[in-house]
Amino acid sequence: MSNRIKLIIQASWVGIAGNTLLAFVKMYVGFTAHSQSVIGDGIDTFSDILTYVIILFTARISQKPPSVKYPYGYLRAETIASKFLSFFIFFAGAQLLYANLSTLISGKERALPEALALYVTAVSIVGKFLLAYWQFYIGKKTNSRMLIANAKNMRADVVLSISVLIGTAATLYFQMPLIDTLLAIVVSLWILRIGFKVFMESNTELMDGVDDTSAYERVFEAADAVKGAYNPHRARIRKMSNLYLIDLDIEVDGQMSVSDSHKIGVAVEQEIKDRLDNVYDIMIHIEPKGNYEVDEKFGLSRDQL
């Protein structure tokens, strides 16, 4: 098992343990202190436990070796998991929005919560913040989209808990449950925005694109640095989890032997690896110098950047 996968699994177990503790505490206090907002916060925390279970399952799938059906391996399972996580985030926001709009429209007043709800919410904010920070740290370190996506979900939970704290405090101070309802509606819209953003971010990889288009410049610079390699063109760069898959056409002297042409191709590959981190695979297509093919309809040339 790679060190990257070990870190992702470790971060997932930390998330499961932390969220399980927070969820049970918030649910218990929510019922005993008669706070609907704290109960809702606890339910949202329970949904986080499920997302971590998905991450654990996906991490184990992604380390499987390539197969006949999936010759590139299973690393894209992380991107698919990020897509599922975006649905969970969006669902949580939609559920919160619906519940509070229903309360607002019906005119039904919520019972005033007890002060105990304030204390457990404050503890929840600290716990959620630490978990979110840990997830972002490991997500950035391992370049894991699904961990970063879940960290954004955790960050939304922090804002949710802050709104619960403010709403509960304002409700107790002003004796107005309406404040809690209005704040919850605002937070639910913010959570919906995060869910949509995570959904859109995973689209780039699923569409065989890259967010950092400067990678193309480095590929062309690498080809230019190799003597005997001409006209790098039809470059295609994809990402699979945290790794790059690169295809590139280059031209060489048409009178050169296959062996010498191969050496130039290998040199270009090495130059690319020296300039670009996390390269999974490089495919170099060699053509005779001056070759032109009318039906080349995909890939990028330097003048298209």
Rank of each mutant, 00 (worst) to 15 (best):
S124F: 04
S124Y: 05
I125E: 09
V126Q: 08
V126W: 02
G127R: 02
G127T: 05
G127W: 01
G127H: 04
G127S: 11
K128V: 02
K128D: 00
K128Y: 00
K128C: 01
K128S: 01
F129W: 13
F129G: 11
F129T: 15
F129D: 10
F129S: 15
F129N: 10
L130M: 15
L130I: 13
L130K: 08
L130A: 15
L130G: 07
L130D: 13
L130R: 06
L130V: 15
L131R: 05
L131W: 03
L131D: 04
A132Q: 00
A132I: 08
A132V: 06
A132R: 03
A132N: 08
A132K: 04
Y133D: 07
Y133E: 07
Y133V: 14
W134R: 04
W134M: 00
W134L: 11
W134Q: 07
W134S: 12
W134D: 01
Q135R: 13
Q135F: 12
Q135Y: 14
F136V: 13
F136L: 14
F136R: 09
F136H: 09
F136M: 13
Y137F: 13
Y137S: 13
Y137V: 02
Y137C: 01
Y137G: 03
I138P: 08
I138Y: 10
I138R: 09
I138Q: 03
G139N: 05
G139K: 05
G139T: 08
G139W: 02
G139Y: 00
G139V: 05
G139I: 01
G139R: 04
K140L: 10
K141M: 14
K141R: 15
K141I: 10
T142H: 05
T142K: 01
T142A: 01
T142V: 10
T142W: 01
N143T: 03
N143E: 11
N143F: 03
S144P: 06
S144T: 09
S144M: 10
S144D: 04
S144E: 03
R145T: 06
R145N: 10
R145V: 08
R145Q: 12
R145P: 02
R145F: 02
R145Y: 03
M146C: 14
M146W: 04
M146H: 08
L147A: 02
L147H: 00
L147Y: 00
L147V: 06
L147I: 04
L147R: 01
L147M: 05
I148G: 00
I148V: 14
A149P: 03
A149R: 02
A149Y: 01
A149V: 12
A149G: 15
A149D: 09
A149C: 07
N150G: 04
A151L: 03
A151T: 00
K152N: 15
K152C: 14
K152S: 13
K152T: 07
N153S: 14
N153V: 02
N153G: 13
N153P: 05
N153Y: 06
M154G: 05
M154D: 05
M154E: 04
M154W: 10
M154S: 14
R155Q: 06
A156E: 00
A156G: 14
A156K: 00
A156R: 00
A156L: 02
D157P: 11
D157L: 12
D157Q: 10
V158G: 06
V158I: 12
V158A: 09
V158P: 01
V158D: 04
V158H: 05
V159F: 14
V159Y: 12
V159R: 08
V159N: 11
L160W: 01
L160R: 07
L160Y: 07
L160S: 15
L160A: 14
L160M: 15
S161A: 12
S161W: 00
S161V: 01
